[in-house]
């Protein structure tokens, strides 16, 4: 088991970082080339000011009509995404590992907080799963891969909580935690999770078109 753990935290970790970074850069380049081929004139009105104005509105809960129209979804979405990003970056155990591998360090969350944030992520995945099943307009645009990415997202958090409390076999669940986290990183460029890279660009595109061309709001 420890040999598998060494494999997962050594070569596999490097491979997953490489695929995550390389794949993400490739996706961005691909998008840029597509925009240049199909919508050349986009670059004539692309505006930093209107881009930031759009991002600024969409990044604040209830600052857009759409957010206000779906209050429950808005609260869940914001709580979910914030927890999803904050937990892995500020989890004490991860800060310890960065410090001990690279001598870089930053403040960490107390473990009790990290548990609460992890439970929010898991609850969010359950919410989105149920929503895909019961809301007709969402079910209509749902494919199998949407369920797969919900599972991929939940997995590192579920196994992390189990390993933290040392339920079942702590070695097995620590290993599953590492491997599922790597799988999630690798999945970013190849699944709809890439909205993590594209969301700000989508807003820049919409914001610029509405602001500079249509002279209207996009929120």
């Amino acid at each position: 088991m420890n040999e598998l753990y060494r494999l997962a935290t050594g070569p596999l970790l490097w491979a997953s970082f490489a695929v995550f970074v390389g794949g993400s850069l490739f996706r961005l380049l691909e998008l840029f080339l597509l925009a240049r081929r199909r919508e050349r004139f986009l670059f004539t009105y692309l505006s930093l000011r209107y881009s930031l104005r759009s991002i600024g509105h969409w990044i604040v809960p209830f600052a857009t009509v759409n957010w206000r129209r779906h209050p429950v979804l808005t609260i869940v979405t914001f709580a979910f995404h914030l927890s999803l990003l904050i937990t892995p970056l500020f989890l004490l155990a991860h800060v310890v590992l960065w410090d001990e591998a690279w001598n870089v360090s930053w403040p960490a969350l107390p473990d009790a907080w990290a548990i609460v944030l992890s439970l929010i992520v898991i609850a969010g995945c359950v919410f989105f799963f149920v929503r895909r099943r019961v809301t007709p307009e969402v079910a209509y645009v749902t494919s199998a891969s949407d369920y797969v990415i919900l599972g991929l997202t939940a997995a590192p958090f579920v196994t992390g909580v189990i390993a933290y409390y040392q339920w079942f076999d702590v070695r097995l669940f620590t290993l599953l935690h590492v491997v599922s986290g790597e799988a999630l990183l690798v999945a970013v460029p190849f699944t709809r999770i890439r909205h993590m890279l594209f969301a700000p660009l989508t807003r820049a595109y919409m914001g610029s078109e509405f602001g500079a061309v249509r002279h209207a709001r996009d929120w």
Partner: peptide, 16 residues
């Protein structure tokens, strides 16, 4: 790690 013996996972040492 060096001797490939003994625990290296958090939960193996920090046991509840």
């Amino acid at each position: 790690l060096e001797r490939r013996r003994g625990p290296i996972l958090c939960g193996e040492c920090h046991r509840r």
